[in-house]
């Protein structure tokens, strides 16, 4: 066998994986989305997705995912930038990643206590003289907790991009008379755009179909498409409708990925 033929054999495990766990589920999902609750062929599910209630839900999902991504970026970029400048990089990185080792549900439950009427956050507000506020079951707490959970996924790619940036480029910019701000705006930021895009995708896409946090922290006051999918599959057992929403979500994500690019072609190199 030629070397080339051997190389094709290496693709077999990946090919099997791809067919079984990527293509087949998507085909099933598509198939299921054309079935009604009694298992008959229909396009009614897609008609239903276009009714105001689901469109509104979609709008909310995108709006909250956007907010979560934006806040993560605004906090994440300076954090990553600062991380590259510190002396004990590995230690700080570890501290950033450490919360990811704790079970997600546990972290979310902790916020139930922290944000409660008699919780730590309100006690703090009280001593500051702001007085108790309702924190739990608000948009604020939903975005806050989501950002808390997703922020490592934003910081890490940006940090890597900044690390790869040759310091000589910054020196060159400064030598040629650029101010610190101009250097950042014209040199550092464009060259780390790949990391920013990767981070935004890593946050935005899972944020779009969040469901557990919407119930626990937002008390179902925030309803996203993730909530609807969960309900259709587990409670209503209307798998067709659940599958349809999932298909629509996937299509939306595909569009976003195409629009933002994969982050490799432009920007970084």
């Amino acid at each position: 066998m030629t070397e080339r033929a051997w190389r094709n054999w290496y693709l077999v495990p990946y090919g099997i994986w791809l067919v079984l766990f990527v293509i087949a589920p998507i085909v099933f999902l598509l198939y299921e989305s054309f079935l009604d609750i009694d298992g008959h062929w229909t396009v009614a599910n897609y008609e239903k997705v276009l009714t105001p209630i689901y469109l509104k839900m979609m709008a909310y999902s995108f709006w909250y995912a956007f907010l979560i991504t934006l806040v993560s970026l605004l906090i994440g970029y300076p954090t990553a930038y600062w991380l590259t400048k510190t002396r004990h990089k590995q230690l700080w990185l570890l501290l950033l990643i450490l919360p990811m080792w704790v079970n997600l549900l546990l972290k979310v439950y902790a916020f139930l206590g922290l944000f409660g009427t008699y919780g730590l956050a309100n006690a703090l507000l009280q001593t500051l003289g702001v007085g108790p506020r309702q924190l739990l079951f608000t948009d604020f707490s939903f975005v806050f907790v989501s950002v808390y959970i997703f922020i490592p996924f934003m910081v890490l790619p940006i940090f890597n991009a900044l690390e790869e940036l040759p310091p000589s480029l910054i020196d060159a910019a400064r030598d040629l008379g650029a101010s610190a701000w101009t250097t950042f705006r014209r040199v550092v930021f464009p060259l780390t755009l790949g990391g920013v895009k990767a981070g935004c995708q890593a946050v935005f896409i899972p944020a779009l179909s969040l469901f557990m946090i919407t119930r626990l922290v937002a008390g179902n006051r925030v309803i996203t498409l993730g909530t609807a999918i969960e309900q259709h599959f587990l409670v209503t057992q209307d798998w067709g409708m659940g599958a349809t929403i999932a298909v629509v979500l996937m299509a939306a994500m595909a569009v976003i990925v195409v629009l933002t690019g994969t982050g490799r072609k432009e920007g970084s190199r």
């Binding site: 609750i37 009694d38 209630i53 509104k56 839900m57 179902n220 006051r221 309803i223 609807a228 309900q231 259709h232 409670v235 209503t236 057992q237 209307d238 409708m241």
Partner: peptide
């Protein structure tokens, strides 16, 4: 029955979608 249960759930979901 499945259909009626789906209808109950649809109305409940619509109710949850109401914002304050």
């Amino acid at each position: 029955g499945k259909r009626m249960l789906a209808y109950y759930n649809e109305l409940f979901l619509e109710f949850k979608m109401q914002q304050k």
